[in-house]
């Protein structure tokens, strides 16, 4: 299933790509391509950890990772690269604050879920119910509950990001104090 802009799928289904702790924004969006176009940038997402990832990841696939996912810089290109590759959701033991905010701000579903690393192996088929924070391993049948996102963040995700939301709300965009 593919996350279409402006609509948050209720359930994401795909294969699992597994990564370790402290996956940094330098790994997600290497500085060398900082100003390259998105089409080029997305080909380098996580390449130093797993060169197959940017080539073989399919829309809807799920990134499962350890602690402190997305640590490092404020670059929004980190979640943006994953979103551009079609990643349906990132489920991690924990997230770095900036990555977490940025992912939601651009409409990439993220779910903190302690225990997820142990519950999955690379390539497992998985299903994530985003609002319900339910993660299921379709190979083992194991189900885990992540930490539910507050309604305000689900609203941002559902709108496809904070700017689409701002636009949709048609708030007085300019000159407001």
């Amino acid at each position: 299933m593919h996350a279409v802009e402006g609509t948050l799928p209720r359930i994401v289904q795909g294969r699992v790509w597994k990564f370790g702790d402290d996956i940094s924004t330098d790994l997600l969006a290497p500085g060398a391509y900082a100003v390259a176009p998105l089409e080029e940038r997305k080909r380098h997402v996580l390449e130093s950890v797993n060169p197959r990832f940017p080539e073989e990841v399919r829309p809807g696939d799920i990134v499962v990772a350890g602690r402190n996912f997305g640590c490092g810089s404020s670059r929004e290109t980190a979640p943006e690269g994953l979103k551009a590759l079609g990643v349906g959701c990132v489920v991690a033991e924990s997230f770095s604050r900036l990555f977490f905010r940025n992912a939601i701000a651009i409409g990439l579903p993220v779910l903190p879920c302690p225990g997820v690393v142990e519950a999955f192996e690379e390539g497992d088929p998985a299903e994530v119910e985003i609002a319900g924070a339910l993660v299921r391993n379709l190979r083992t049948g194991q189900a885990l509950w992540g930490r539910k996102l507050p309604p305000a963040m689900l609203e941002v995700l559902a709108a496809g990001g904070i700017l689409p939301l701002l636009k949709a709300r048609g708030q007085q965009l300019s000159g407001t104090t």
């Binding site: 490092g72 810089s73 404020s74 670059r75 929004e76 900036l98 905010r101 940025n102 701000a105 651009i106 990001g161 904070i162 700017l163 701002l166 708030q171 965009l173 300019s174 407001t176 104090t177």
Partner: peptide, 29 residues
């Protein structure tokens, strides 16, 4: 920028955000 925490040296609540959130801040304050 993530190193916005630097301003805390002067008792400032400084923190990093991404570009979309910055656009939101620039529009709404």
């Amino acid at each position: 920028d993530s190193h916005t925490t630097t301003y805390g040296a002067l008792a400032v609540a400084g923190t990093g955000i991404g570009t979309s959130e910055m656009a939101y801040v620039l529009a709404t304050g």
